[in-house]
Structure formats: structure tokens, C-alpha cells
């Protein structure tokens, strides 16, 4: 794109792009964004199926929803949001040239994500002890399928965060090499994003 005229006019010491008008850029790998779109469509289909199944069984859904642990659901929302925040700080650290410092932020994000898993396992244990199963009711079927589908995404997200942590420790991410950390971070935020609908839909709406 560089023409002779540009080369002559632009002093080499100055950046070629004005800092107040940066080009629009999709962070991370393009492929992860198509993957995220597919995931959003899948979760969206589940959410809408839940909402319309509820419309046909309002009394059952309202009654059985009361037995859900809203405190655990809210705590898990806070854990995922905090985890996402730590991952944003990791990306910002890498962008600022503090690639190794990013590892500490990612470790914080991983710890919150692991906290989500622990809270969820306590919740599932209590539900299974109370006789909840896939076949115990339409509500329980949706509750288990939706939350477990999300749970599996949290586990995959934690594997990705572990890989990012390892890469950050080795100083792999820098202002010139943001692709890996941006790609992993985008996936992790998607896991958070879908929970932001799942929580009010399944635990609160009545």
C-alpha cells in the first residue's frame, strides 16, 4: 500500500496510522468468532426452547424453580464476571508489553472459573440427593441440560485459560503477538455472556 509519495511525506519516526482513528479490527483469530457465533446460536435455541416449554407449564416451572439455589446461581454469576474481568486485565497487560504479568491475571481468572465449577458441583450434589434427574420433570430436564451444557463450556474454557497461563508465563504474548491471548479471551467471555441470560431465565424469571 505504501506509495513513493507516502514514503517521502511520512517521517519514519512517526506512526503511519493516526492514534485517534485506528482501523477497525476483530481481536484474535477469525475462526474463533465463527465458533462463538455457532455456540451463541446453540445456546439461544436452548434458551428459547426453555422459555416456550415454560409457557406451556407455567405452574410446574414456577413451583420447581423455587427449589433452585438462587444464591449459588448469583455467586456463580459474580465468579464468572470477575473471571472475565481478570482475563480482560491479562489482555490489557499483554497489550501494554507486560506479557508475564498477564499470567498472574489469567491465574486469577482460572481460580474464579474453578470456583464456578466447585459451586456448581455442590449445587448438583444437592439436587441429585433431592431426587432431581433428567426424567423427574420437564423443568428438571431443562435445568440439567442447560446448566450442564454450560458447565462443559466452562471446563473447556478452563483448559484454554490454563494454556494461556502457560503461554503468558513463557512471555509468549506481547503487543506484537496478541492473537493467542485474544482468541482464548474471546471464548471465555462468550461462556460468561451466555450465563448472563441463563441465570435470570432459569433461576429468577417467574
Amino acid at each position: 500500500m505504501n506509495t513513493c509519495a507516502q514514503t517521502l511525506v511520512s517521517p519514519p519516526a512517526l506512526p503511519a496510522v493516526a492514534s485517534d482513528s485506528p482501523a477497525r479490527r476483530l481481536p484474535g483469530d477469525l475462526a474463533i468468532w465463527f465458533f462463538i457465533l455457532a455456540e451463541l446460536l446453540a445456546f439461544g435455541a436452548f434458551f428459547i426452547a426453555y422459555a416456550f416449554a415454560r409457557a406451556n407449564n407455567v405452574e410446574l416451572f414456577n413451583e420447581q424453580q423455587l427449589a433452585l439455589d438462587r444464591n449459588a446461581g448469583a455467586l456463580n454469576t459474580i465468579l464468572l464476571l470477575t473471571s472475565s474481568y481478570f482475563v480482560v486485565r491479562a489482555v490489557q497487560a499483554a497489550e501494554a508489553g507486560q506479557g508475564r504479568r498477564a499470567a498472574t491475571w489469567i491465574a486469577g481468572g482460572f481460580a474464579c472459573g474453578a470456583g464456578f465449577i466447585v459451586v456448581k458441583l455442590f449445587e448438583y450434589t444437592a439436587k441429585f440427593a433431592a431426587g432431581v434427574s433428567l426424567s423427574s420433570s420437564t423443568f428438571h430436564m431443562f435445568y440439567l441440560v442447560l446448566t450442564f451444557f454450560h458447565f462443559m463450556h466452562v471446563i473447556l474454557g478452563l483448559v484454554i485459560l490454563a494454556a494461556l497461563w502457560n503461554g503468558a508465563r513463557k512471555g509468549r504474548y506481547s503487543p506484537g503477538n496478541m492473537n493467542g491471548i485474544e482468541t482464548g479471551a474471546a471464548y471465555w467471555h462468550m461462556v460468561d455472556l451466555v450465563w448472563l441470560i441463563l441465570f435470570p431465565l432459569v433461576y429468577v424469571m417467574r
Partner: peptide, 29 residues
Amino acid sequence: QTQGSSARALPHSDHGTPLRATVIWVVLI
């Protein structure tokens, strides 16, 4: 994705500032 090396050295950030991220976290909580 193509990232010009000249763009990387800019003070411009694609990911905002730590302060902005923190304020957003408080709002989300």
C-alpha cells in the same frame, strides 16, 4: 488478520484501559 507492525507501537488500545474495565466490572456486579 493482518496487523501492521506500525500500528502495534501506537498508544491506541483495542482493549480499553484498566480503569474502564474496573468500572464496568463494578456495574456488572
